[in-house]
Design a binder for these strands. Sequence first.
RNA 1: GCCCCCAUCGUCUAGUGGCCUAGGAUACCGGCUUUUCAUGCCGGCGACAGGGGUUCGAAUCCCCUUGGGGGUGCCA
Length: 505
Amino acid sequence: MVPTTTNTEPLRVRFAPSPTGYLHIGGARTVLFNWLLARRAGGTFILRIEDTDQTRHVEDSVQKILEDLRWLGLHWDEGPELGGPCGPYFQSERLDTYNRYLQQLLESGHAYYALETQEQLQALRATGERTTGGFRYRRPDPVPTVEEGLAARAAGRQIVVRFKMPEEDIVVSDIILGEVRLPAEQLEDFVLQKGDGFPTYHFACVVDDALMRVTHVLRGQEHLMNTPKHVALQRALGFPTPVYAHLPVIFNLDGSKMSKRDKEKALARGEAPPEIDVHDFRVAGYLPEALVNFISLLGWSPGEDREKLTLDETVALFSIDRVGKTNARFDREKLLAFNTDWATRVTPPRLLEALRDFLAVNPDVPSAMREAAEETLAEVLRVCTGFRTFPDVIRKAGFLFVPDEAIVYDDKAVKKVLAKNEGEGYAVLRKLLPALADLADWSAAGVEAFLQHTCSDRNVQLGKIAQPLRVAVSGTTISPSIHETLALLGKARTITRIERCLQSV
RNA sequence: GCCCCCAUCGUCUAGUGGCCUAGGAUACCGGCUUUUCAUGCCGGCGACAGGGGUUCGAAUCCCCUUGGGGGUGCCA
């Protein structure tokens, strides 16, 4: 049995992204489960930045990841901006620490300098692929001495340090997958320190998890094969082995990986790019409540046919025991349904706050809408119920925020509602105009009463009047209910728009 | 190639030997509500991958096959 940390010490988990861009939706699910476990157990959630690959580092991505986490409502207890007792929380600032442990491994004979060049390894790998179908690094016998390694480095060569993998099967104990045995012959001497002096992921991760006293490691299943390396390293370093839980992976509906490249591919086909990063969903007008609820159900279920849960309820219900082993597919239709529902269950002030955030991050909204008064936006939300995402609100009420002279009339709407039957719709507008101009009570209720009376007086369906008005003021057949629309627009602008519409005949 | 993981409606899942003629959600289809677009409500369609065992009894346990995923980097 692999020794694991005892469960008497306080639970500590971490999320350790590398700064290569925005937070990926798969990463979001991993953070979420870590965060949920920490909150559920009253433990600590650590955020650590794994910036050990200088070549892949993307400018500003740390800030972007932090912002995504905050938007999701998943706040960290230790990490960037907050600090904490186990800092620094950027691996690039911990090089001395890694070097100290590297020395220890070198001295105890657990590690050695490996002198092969990248080109040599590449060649070996290529022939290995061709002949046996695979390549496994063979430890030199004898291994180069420390002096030889140092001498090669002094000569300007990029020399790596490898770990002496023990020649024994390693059993990884995973609370989701059970015990997984990895045969010794599959394991090889992996690199601890790269030619540029930076630690590899394996090394930095093991050292940091131990030093930051991480008790539980929840990560994607793609890391399962890394775990024996980590376990062996922990033993060599005298570190405890944390509890491991490898989470199932999230794919596209067609089974392919959800990758940033999907966006480029869709763009190349002239299609709308799919949301892949958390930020994409934010810009697309989703509520974090819905997104978090939805991804919490990918690989986890509270049972009892429950689905709609707030973050707090999820915390109260969360348990790794109920995390499944099966990979999941990301169904955007279902997310859309969740978002539609969440838009009706959050409080109006919260919805307004979310709308403001959407208006701030989405570049394609009418600029007047960003400057609109709180009360106006609140009214818009009140009359736009039934939307799926915020762009639906823009589609339905955006015309309220463009200048009267900028209204464009949709051809189909004009034909169907105004021009048909020898301009029947226009005739309605002409008749209505003076009466509307005389209307004293321009509240929604006042307008509604007026329209109702007009209908019964002329013995027509409300649609006969509402639709021409709708097209006249919005340019389309889509808007909130007609009385709310006119009330929101105001009398003057309504009249102006109707007159302009009539002039366009 | 080798190693590892996984397998219930199209999709997310409930189910841990009898409560299952398999439940919920979403999607789809039909109906209702409605001044537009939506929303909402009601109903319907729809799955235990295949084959062997074990057992009085299997979606649940075991084996094989098939299918899917991951690993096989000086990426993380």
